[in-house]
Design a protein around this nucleic acid. Structure first.
Length: 429
RNA sequence: GGAGAGGUAGCGAAGCGGCCGUAACGCGCUCGACUCGAAAUCGAGUUACCGGUGAUGAGCCGGUACGUGGGUUCGAAUCCCACCCUCUCCGCCA
């Protein structure tokens, strides 16, 4: 959510940002809604002032033992009118609010201006893609042949965009997740969290998934709970409504959770394999920063994510998302894209964003300055470190051998019982 | 699922139709006095948000907020209804 004052006093700044993001929202619409809200408020507040004054008079008359029935009669009518106007004012306020809630964050000045993902800017590249002496296969082919993935049975159990992984594949995923978490905790100093995987509407609104993107979420109808699409949601909302002492900043969390996404609107995209699933494991980092240090923190977070790919020796590149491709809540985002030889392209494996005070304002997350003074909004950041399923995809495609086996990256061997290679099918029907 | 208790400022807690919401009282926090310094003590200050007017400041004027939403009333923290959350006991359960 943007600052209401900013939208009122500097509509041109917001209009410019909306344009850069390809938004269809029109600031004129906001100004009309806001003007109506203020007019109604002024009117009803004047009446309420009158009522308050009269109430005091009634009390005084009664105490003096005198008759107040004349005043009561006129005030009854005023109260009636207040009730009507209050309802209208409430409606006008809700209209402004829902408009404001659908406005995306303003991109930072350093973000490249562009229409879509084709105008993202590559800012770094690491590693050299391996030379293959055979045509590299896609991960689902290698993985299924080795008996690790079963898309047919997943279809039976649930439907499309699910997978059953078993044997080495299931263990691989667990190894990757544990490896990442151990590094975050021991080396990056993050605090491990196991949050609820279902959250309420308010929580989804705090981080910006609602009200605009409900169709992307799985919702439990009987409970009005939502399955989290990323641990960013519960972690960022951990401190919703709180005032954090400045000494406590920055706060640094990491969680390894399943994530659930409806993938509505992606029909026909990535229909094969693990790339786009309804359910996937992801390690997420969330950082609460002092406003002056959030952009430094974004670089640190990006480095935390990069180190994981480097240790697994997976080639990747870093792109700065352009204004048209950035997520709703972000003011600056880096994507890490890992090299997939089977698909012969880079695919997103991490997204690290600084959300500035956008989420903090929605979720009301503030800090108390050291020297005293009013609480201010913190800045929130989130980044994948990393998407576990896609990491497995990258390992399979990069480490596949001509005979169909997969070499286990050195760093992961201690987490895989010391084995150096996956070459035998999992034992199952 | 059953029974009970509770939700008021940063925390604890009083109030139970108008004299109590810049909200008693206590703690905390800020400033000051005392002190070589500290503790103790004493004194003063300390809610947020919205609208109007200022300069997106200060100040002033008005409004709102006692878990949330409704209702009764000229007037609700206080009375009525529904819901949410927390705690205790019982039942069930990994």
């Amino acid at each position: 959510m943007l600052d209401l004052k900013l939208m009122q006093k500097n509509p041109e700044i917001v209009a410019k940002a909306l344009h850069a993001r390809n938004s269809k929202l029109d600031m004129g619409e906001f100004q009309a809604l806001d003007a109506r809200r203020r007019d109604l408020l002024a009117e009803v507040e004047a009446l309420k002032a009158q009522r308050n004054k009269a109430s005091a008079e009634v009390a005084a008359l009664k105490r003096a033992g005198r008759d107040a029935s004349e005043l009561l009669k006129t005030m009854s009518a005023v109260s009636e009118r207040i009730k009507e106007l209050d309802a209208q004012a409430e409606e006008a306020k809700a209209a402004v609010e829902s408009w404001v809630m659908s406005v995306p964050n303003i991109p930072d000045a350093s973000v490249p201006v562009g229409r879509d993902e084709n105008e993202n800017v590559e800012v770094a590249r690491w590693g050299t893609p391996r030379e293959f002496s055979f045509p590299p296969k896609e991960h689902w082919e290698v993985g299924t042949k080795l008996g690790g993935f079963d898309f047919d049975r997943a279809g039976k159990l649930a439907g499309s965009r699910f997978v059953v992984s078993w044997g080495w594949a299931a263990r691989f995923e667990r190894a990757i997740a544990n490896y990442f978490m151990d590094i975050h905790i021991a080396e990056h100093g993050l605090i491990e969290v196991q949050p609820p995987l279902m959250v309420n509407r308010r929580t989804m609104t705090g981080t910006g998934q609602l009200p605009k993107f409900e169709e992307d979420l799985f919702r439990l109808e009987a409970w009005d709970y939502f399955l989290i699409p990323t641990a960013e949601v519960p972690l960022t909302n951990l401190h919703a409504g709180e005032v954090i002492p400045e000494e406590m900043l920055p706060l640094n969390y990491a969680a390894m959770t399943p994530c659930f996404r409806s993938e509505a609107g992606s029909y026909g995209k990535d229909t094969k394999g693990l790339i786009r699933q309804h359910q996937f494991l992801k390690v997420e980092m969330v950082h609460f920063a002092h406003p002056e240090r959030s952009f430094e923190a974004l670089e640190t977070m990006r480095a935390h994510a990069e180190t994981l790919l480097q240790r697994l020796e997976l080639p990747y590149r870093v792109v700065a998302l352009c204004t048209g491709d950035m997520g709703f809540s972000a003011c600056k985002t880096y994507d890490l894209e890992v090299w997939l030889p089977g698909q012969n392209k880079f695919r997103e494996i991490s997204s690290c964003s600084n959300c500035g005070d956008f989420q903090a304002r929605r979720a009301n997350i503030r800090f108390k300055p050291k020297g005293g003074g009013k609480p201010e909004f913190v800045h929130t950041l989130n980044g994948s470190g990393l998407a576990v399923g896609r990491t497995l995809v990258a390992i399979i495609e990069n480490y596949q051998q001509e005979d169909g086996s997969i070499v286990v990256p050195k760093a992961l061997r201690p987490y895989m019982g010391g084995i150096e290679r996956v070459d035998a099918p999992a034992r199952h029907l």
